[in-house]
Design a protein around this nucleic acid. Structure first.
Lengths: 204, 204
DNA sequence: CACTATCGGATAGTTGAACTATCCGTCCGG
DNA sequence: CCGGACGGATAGTTCAACTATCCGATAGTG
């Protein structure tokens, strides 16, 4: 890890400065290394911007609140606010989201950030002529529930506050990456089943 | 859509030039608009780079192969080759991936691109002190299978070749975005169930 | 038929994010 | 006691994705 980069992160407020032992000598500890690794992972695996990383770290470092209030906060902060096309979701997409919430017994009130994000994505699908994509929503939702269960039970197994928050952040990022890979494998598998040996490369 | 941007896309080979009717007049059609919309969506919702978009479009435009051979190709091209940390996956991660493939009856030979990507992500988890994250793999894999089924059955409902390929591309991107939103909603829901009203914002 | 606004094509400049290099003054270590 | 590493500040670099300007030709208007 190049030194100038670390200096840069300190300047940007992502990494606390070391303890000054004298005007030009500072000492770094375990926490610094851990934090640095976390930053690099969010950047690499998570694909987050430094600005977003700074927000997340701010939440993680705010010790003034109980842990589980913060969890949702962190999860929400991890959620990427993609440009996602134009802007406002269509009424139809909103209705679809509301209906889905109803079916699954979810609490997704109007204006819920993730609900809105979902509606915007569905609106984008409509604009692309794929309004039928919404038929997959229930299967996706079931899958999401299963993953969320696994996530939560993993997080519950973590001990201290810092570990939990970091676990949420990391679980969010790694989970996305892991699921992406698994999804592609499963798709290839399914395509093979449906269409008979749809091979991907020259393997097997 | 600003004209200079379109010119730029044409220069980059993302968008075919219009039919030249005279040295300085060209005509654009339906396909151009459709293509442009697709590009903007990959850029926005999918968060892909122009370089990657160009690769994907090249595959979509290559009419020399049967449709379902191309499907896996497109899916693989959509897969983001994140820096994902250092480089080589750990032996342990590889073993974990192989074991998972075994349990699920998947064909994931050594060197399979998505298998490797998955192993790299798990290696990253280890480096972050979360080797236990792997216990969630089976739940994730089940969820991935469910999603893949839904994806495939959606794609089967599309008619012509172009529609199918575009559907794969779009389904991949939209699916990721949709699943991300659903996952966060489901997590909040699950957190609420497990910890009792873990609220997210000031709603409800 | 003249004339100007517009188009296609090419070249060059801008913006923002994430670094990277240089400089300067201090102080630790040999 | 002195050379070289360190902390801090400032400025420069690189890359991606645009954006603006210029040029010559032509299409459409009067």
């Amino acid at each position: 890890m190049p030194v100038p980069t670390i200096k840069f992160y300190v300047r940007e407020g992502l990494l606390p400065a070391g303890e000054l032992t004298s005007p030009n000598q500072a000492t770094y500890g375990d926490g610094h290394e851990r934090r640095l690794r976390l930053i690099r992972s969010m950047l690499g695996v998570g694909g987050l911007s430094l600005a977003r990383i700074a927000e997340i770290l701010a939440v993680v470092d705010d010790t003034s609140q109980p842990v589980f209030e913060l969890m949702g906060e962190v999860a929400g902060t991890v959620a990427a606010p993609r440009p996602a096309g134009s802007g406002e979701p269509s009424a139809r997409a909103r209705a679809e989201v509301a209906a889905l919430g109803e079916r699954r017994g979810w609490h997704v009130p109007a204006g819920h950030p993730d609900g809105e994000a979902l509606a915007r994505t569905l609106t984008e699908a409509e604009r692309l002529g794929h309004e039928g994509f919404a038929v997959t929503l229930d299967a996706y939702a079931q899958a999401a529930e299963r993953v969320a269960e696994a996530d939560l039970s993993y997080v519950r197994g973590l001990g201290a506050r810092d570990d939990v928050l970091e676990g949420v952040v990391i679980g969010m990022m790694l989970g996305d990456a892991v699921f992406g890979s698994l999804r592609r494998i499963a798709q290839a598998e399914e395509a093979g089943r449906v269409y008979g040996r749809g091979r991907r490369g020259d393997e097997e």
